[in-house]
Design a protein around this nucleic acid. Structure first.
Lengths: 238, 238
DNA sequence: CGTCATTTTGAATCGTATCAACTATCGTGG
DNA sequence: CCACGATAGTTGATACGATTCAAAATGACG
């Protein structure tokens, strides 16, 4: 596992964007019902650039394992992380001939990439894509609410709830003292850019949650949620 | 009785920022090659509710003519308009069995609705859907940047630029004094909820633009942009 | 153990929200 | 057509939350 991480930290940053076919061997013919699409597996190190906004969008990607963020930059340097993606999620979609955002891994990540034109010709793939994309749209809607209408503390609470598996809160009414330990694998800056805040504000929100005893920070990017329902109530959603 | 079919505002209601809009024409009884899908035309008055968040999502909709907004509510009443849609745009998508947002018309609107299950079985429709949805995702990304990173004035400027057809600004460098008159067909409250602001702040932004001579307010929802490039520069995007 | 980067904390500032008039616009009926 | 009330929009004063700038603390790593 460790050895894979090293694989291509340097060059991917340099040759921004769409990764050409390297020596990388594992090409898997994805057998999709009646039609086959060539899927190409590529491994990326942590914090590696997959593509840049503006690069020609002739391939689309699916996360197999790991995490990816999509972000956009304003000319003066302001950044907004627009999506966080995990296993199964598809990215690199665009209705223009170039990507509308940049993609960077958060952890060592394995993705499969497909030729765009091939995808668009495959009905089975389109059906799959369709389902994926609909859940992404829902997530984007939810995120718009967060960015447009929630306070800093609500944003951070909502952010943490993303990582709580299966949303334990509403189902286990009996036990209030539920906890969960989660690994963020994002820097404060990345979190801030995702939540539309500054690092300082994110930090203060974490401190506030800790002060209230709702979370403990085990390590910098590892949070123990002592009281899932407590966080849940702070999201503004319930 | 409401007489329908009025003017359409600004063409590309739901398009992403800098997009040459070549619209898919509002085709109707969708004759897509080998498969036909029953499309059902429905007319809605202005400010009519198409569906509510949580309603069973067994149909999807396409705007033929008019304008629709999608919004989400927080339990305490805060509202965020998550999408603005115009002719050609599709809505009512969801990965859950129920709608993730509510849909309301902004103007008298003609829509076609399709049975969800039928759509998902039609490869041709899926292909079309796919294109639509990708442009919506781009718009949502753009909107996340607006909500997360732009100032009030930048938001309002960006909002106005949506209505400027074909994005005159960058192409016509020669003529600086370009103008355009646009019909918003949204109340201040709706604009505020779209931009993640309050009505007062939106109002102040409009006043500021007027003070600078960049726009004139002909009527409450009719804005004359005296200097398109001026607005464009204020969006933060260029 | 010391250096560097990241995070946290503090104090001051700024921008937007809030609250409270005031004004303009729209629709209705006299 | 005008008066009228109702609704929507504007403007001003103040409050509050997030940002900014600065510095200290913590963690990562050789």
């Amino acid at each position: 596992m460790k050895q894979l991480i090293e694989e291509r930290q340097g060059e991917s940053a340099a040759r921004c964007g769409h990764t050409p076919v390297l020596h990388a061997p594992p090409v898997l013919p994805v057998h999709e019902g009646d039609c086959e699409i060539e899927g190409q597996r590529v491994r990326f190190a942590q914090h590696a650039l997959v593509f840049l906004e503006g690069d020609p969008a002739d391939r689309i990607f699916q996360v197999v394992d790991g995490a990816v963020m999509l972000y956009k930059l304003l000319p003066d340097g302001r950044r907004q992380v627009v999506e966080l993606l995990g296993p199964g999620d598809i990215f690199g979609l665009s209705f223009k001939p170039s990507f509308d955002s940049s993609a960077e891994t958060l952890t060592p990540t394995l993705v499969t990439s497909f030729e765009r034109t091939a995808v668009e010709r495959s009905p089975n793939f389109l059906a799959r894509l369709n389902r994926c994309v609909q859940s992404q749209i829902c997530a984007l809607h939810e995120h718009a609410v967060l960015l447009g209408r929630k306070s800093a503390l609500e944003r951070v609470a909502s952010f943490l709830m993303r990582f709580v598996p299966l949303h334990i809160c509403p189902t286990h009414h009996g036990r209030e003292q539920l906890f969960a330990t989660i690994r963020l694998s994002m820097t404060r800056q990345e979190i801030a850019d995702y939540l539309g805040l500054t690092i300082e504000t994110v930090s203060r929100a974490f401190s506030e949650l800790r002060r209230r005893g709702i979370v403990s920070l085990e390590r910098q990017d590892e949070v123990k949620i002592n009281h899932v329902c407590g966080i849940c109530r702070l999201t503004g959603t319930h």
